[in-house]
Amino acid sequence: MGFDLAGYHVPVKADVPDIHVVLIDKRDPIVNRMGAKGMGEIPLVGFTAAIANAVFHATGELIRELPLTPDKFL
């Protein structure tokens, strides 16, 4: 049930912890002439599993279905 982003919950600032930025100081001449690397999709592969594992570590509950909403931990 939901037809806009008010009802479709994405993380907001209050949900996001401090982010540590790591700069990779190495040219990549293959992808583009600027030498920049693309990092769009790569983190998508592991991050839900990483969050689910962190939650498991904190609660002892391993939830294998997204989203990880509070009701699933009762």
């Binding site: 919950h9 993380p11 600032k13």
Partner: peptide, 12 residues
């Protein structure tokens, strides 16, 4: 308040 995210969400 227990909710699905930390701000701008109704209470469960």
């Amino acid at each position: 308040k227990i909710r699905d995210r930390a701000s701008y969400a109704f209470a469960l």
